[in-house]
Simulated scan of single mutants.
Amino acid sequence: MSDQTEAPAKPRSSVGRVLMGILIFQLGLGGLLVVGDMQGLRLPSFGPNVPRLTEPVRPGDQRRTFRPDRDRPTVQPARDPGELPDRLVLSRDSDAVYRLEGGIRAGDAERLIDLIEAADPTPETLIVQSQGGSVSDALALGRHIRAEGIKTQMLSGEYCYSACPYLLAAGISRDIHDDASVGVHQHYFGENTFLPAGFAVEDIQRGQAEVMTYLNDMGIDPLVMQHALSTPPNEIYVLLPEELEAYNFSPSDQ
């Protein structure tokens, strides 16, 4: 009985630690941005000799280099999509099941919302696969997917990286095959900025707050962001099936 009464306090403590970690990270990043503005420095990658996605992922060894035009997961897909398009494409798979594939670009949310609303029959399930892209478009499209009561799914050997997990999270239920690959990393804001560093840090803070609010609204544990924040944009942290369950991407009771 004592275990049951103490359990609710743990998530709040964990979230508090994550928020503190985010604050420390952003303060450090702000300092680096200021130095970079003054001296033209580029932020370094973290961790030496990070293997490519062609290397198997094991517990505790989950960070891989990631270039969308080059890197693919090691598992063999059930359906080889070839090169994914640069922008999201909606195509009918069967009945009310559709595929949503490709890079997420600025303006894709509005465009895909129109396509989903015009689709006949109305989509009930979206099979998602994407190398990622625009975070703001992924969040906007994800909120529409949730509002429409659409399920999301990932098939064996297919992947969902960077901003794509926000689309995956939007499903009213999420069916993720154990051999699917879901990965997160820091959001990429570009190597150069024409804004003062203080404005850049403010944008980062606002963006992280929006992402964490979105994840919470979708029923995903925001603690997943600890992996994203510690993984630079040119790498990807691949979530294991047990992590996807722990963070509620694939809850065992759905």
Results as ranks from 00 to 15, higher is better:
183 G>D: 02
143 R>G: 07
156 S>E: 08
78 A>C: 08
184 V>Y: 03
57 V>E: 13
231 T>M: 06
194 F>K: 05
159 Y>N: 00
21 G>W: 01
51 P>I: 03
188 Y>E: 03
172 I>F: 10
30 G>Y: 00
190 G>E: 03
145 I>T: 07
123 P>A: 05
22 I>C: 07
239 L>S: 05
77 P>G: 10
203 D>E: 07
116 I>F: 05
224 V>E: 04
134 S>G: 03
138 A>M: 03
21 G>Q: 02
213 T>G: 04
70 R>W: 08
91 S>D: 12
163 A>V: 14
159 Y>W: 12
59 P>S: 00
79 R>V: 09
7 A>Y: 03
173 S>Q: 13
62 Q>P: 11
96 A>N: 07
126 L>H: 01
125 T>V: 11
177 H>N: 08
55 E>T: 13
168 L>H: 10
161 Y>V: 07
228 A>M: 06
7 A>K: 06
112 L>A: 11
56 P>F: 14
17 R>A: 11
83 E>Y: 03
115 L>E: 01
212 M>Q: 13
231 T>L: 05
249 F>N: 12
91 S>M: 10
70 R>A: 13
160 C>F: 10
212 M>K: 15
87 R>D: 06
138 A>F: 13
52 R>N: 10
101 E>I: 14
125 T>L: 08
62 Q>S: 12
98 Y>F: 08
55 E>Y: 06
12 R>K: 12
237 Y>M: 12
4 Q>A: 14
128 V>F: 02
165 P>D: 02
205 Q>D: 06
203 D>S: 13
121 P>R: 11
95 D>E: 10
171 G>R: 11
154 M>K: 05
244 L>Y: 00
101 E>A: 12
76 Q>E: 15
41 L>T: 09
203 D>H: 09
222 P>S: 05
